[in-house]
């Protein structure tokens, strides 16, 4: 398998929920005011004082079997470079079927264009000589990893082999390419 398959990993051990990734993504990608393509999720469980907290930086999972691509009536939602899920703004009618189809609620309507917006894995950078996403670049704890899942020597592949990792809603059957290290 020589085709590139981009994936992302967030290390929940080192993520401190600072949301630098959220702000950096907004400025890099000119995201509409009031909207975010990525976000911080925390879950605290246990009973005082034995508490544990899981912290994640989440975004579109760029699923291998993306229901948002299957359901799009105009082909605007499609598989782009490296198997990422992209949206061609000019083809989007804003029917929102893809938003309903996404189990992760990762997509939204950009009010300025009426078209779908979401994380693009920064393909405009990645396919243009800067192989890091904006969120990965800014992250002060270096918790975000990005690379080719089909390259066994890539950092993302190594981490998946050597650390305990999980993806969100695996039973939804979408085969997400965004993983979290425990």
């Amino acid at each position: 398998m020589s085709a590139v398959s981009y994936g992302m990993i967030v290390d929940t051990r080192t993520c401190v929920a600072c949301a630098a990734c959220v702000i950096a993504c907004k400025t890099e990608n000119d995201v509409a005011e009031g909207f975010s393509r990525d976000w911080i999720f925390t879950a605290t469980s246990g009973s005082f004082p034995n508490l544990e907290m899981e912290i994640r930086s989440e975004r579109c999972n760029h699923c291998e079997d993306a229901p948002c691509v299957a359901v799009c009536p105009t082909g605007a939602s499609h598989y782009g470079p490296g198997g990422t899920v992209q949206v061609t703004e000019s083809k989007c009618t804003g029917c929102k079927a893809c938003i309903a189809a996404c189990p992760y609620d990762a997509r939204f309507i950009d009010p300025r264009t009426g078209a779908i917006d979401k994380c693009t894995f920064c393909v405009h950078r990645v396919e243009n000589g800067t192989p890091t996403t904006a969120c990965q670049e800014v992250c002060p704890t270096k918790s975000i990893y990005f690379g080719d899942l089909n390259d066994p020597e890539s950092e993302v592949s190594r981490l998946l082999r050597t650390r305990q990792a999980y993806a969100l809603l695996p039973d939804a059957g979408t085969r997400p390419k965004h993983f979290f290290l425990k």
């Binding site: 400025t27 890099e28 990608n29 000119d30 082909g75 499609h78 782009g80 470079p81 992209q86 061609t88 703004e89 083809k91 693009t120 393909v123 405009h124 396919e127 243009n128």
Partner: peptide, 16 residues
Amino acid sequence: TDWYGRYANPIADPGT
């Protein structure tokens, strides 16, 4: 078939 490949999908660049 995306009109035989002519109805292609460009990579959008936010231009920042």
